Simulated assay, not measured.
Amino acid sequence: MTNTYWLYIVMVIFTVSSPGPGVLMTLDNAIANGWRASLSGVIGLALGAAVMAGLTSAGIGLLIRSSQPLFLFLKYCGVAYLFYLAYITWNRDVRQIAQQAANGQRGDQAGRWARLLRGVLLQTSNPKSLLFFLSVLPQVVESTSSGRPLPLPVAIATYCVVLILIHAVYAALAARARTWLSQPKAARLLSRLSAAMFFAFGITMLSLKF
């Protein structure tokens, strides 16, 4: 179990720290709202991951993977949500963000529950999360390399904790850049880049095959 667990941790760290929609959302929240406010979105991502892992363990994930209509529905929901994030990021008031960043205030009006919900929706609408849990969880939970499998609750809790820790670091680093946002041109550039990346992730998700 020890070897399996540490191998699983390495896989989770690599997966969670890799650039993706979740990482971009955390960076965007931290820059617009500060480190503390961005943590609600991080918690939402962790809750979404727990939901996806739970559905996978219940066999629902396998059902989705074996059914092309369900898989396509999930994929297009995820793509639509990424396009929506790209739209609102592109059109937000960058001058207000710049002024609030200079004063150390939040850059948008979304509350903590709204950011938490965004995190949950982003994670649960991402087919990549489903495919990760379908391919990795069965291997570590059913592993017998040391005579005992890794308990499913431990595997899910580990993923969530690692996600929170890594995204908290990302958010702390991004929050330090808020001073740079006191310049409207810089705020506009960052907003446009973030929107373009959300859109690019949506296009990439469209290429996922059943």
Results as ranks from 00 to 15, higher is better:
W180G: 05
S191P: 07
F133G: 03
S40K: 02
D28K: 14
I203Q: 09
R115G: 13
R178E: 03
L72Y: 12
L82S: 06
Y159R: 08
L134Y: 04
D108A: 08
V12C: 14
G78F: 00
G78N: 09
L173P: 00
G78S: 11
F83P: 05
N33E: 14
L134V: 04
V161F: 07
Y159K: 07
R148L: 08
V161Q: 13
S17G: 13
T4D: 03
T89E: 03
V161I: 12
P151R: 00
I156L: 01
W180L: 09
A46W: 06
I13R: 10
A177V: 09
A98N: 11
S17V: 09
W113H: 11
R95S: 06
L24P: 02
A157N: 00
Y84F: 10
L70S: 13
R176E: 02
Q99V: 08
G202A: 05
A157L: 13
A196K: 03
A186G: 07
V10A: 15
A86P: 04
L24Y: 13
G147M: 07
Y76Q: 02
A114T: 10
S135C: 02
A155T: 01
Y5S: 12
S40N: 12
F199G: 03
N91Y: 08
L45D: 07
S125I: 08
V140S: 04
N91C: 06
F133L: 11
A49T: 12
M25D: 09
S40D: 10
Q123K: 04
V140M: 08
R95K: 11
T124C: 15
A50E: 02
R178L: 02
F83Y: 08
Y87I: 15
V154N: 03
S66F: 03
R118S: 15
L47F: 04
L137K: 02
L189G: 07
A102R: 07
Y81T: 12
A49C: 02
K128T: 00
T124L: 14
A200V: 02
F198Y: 13
G147D: 02
T179L: 05
V120W: 00
L45M: 07
F14Y: 05
Y76A: 11
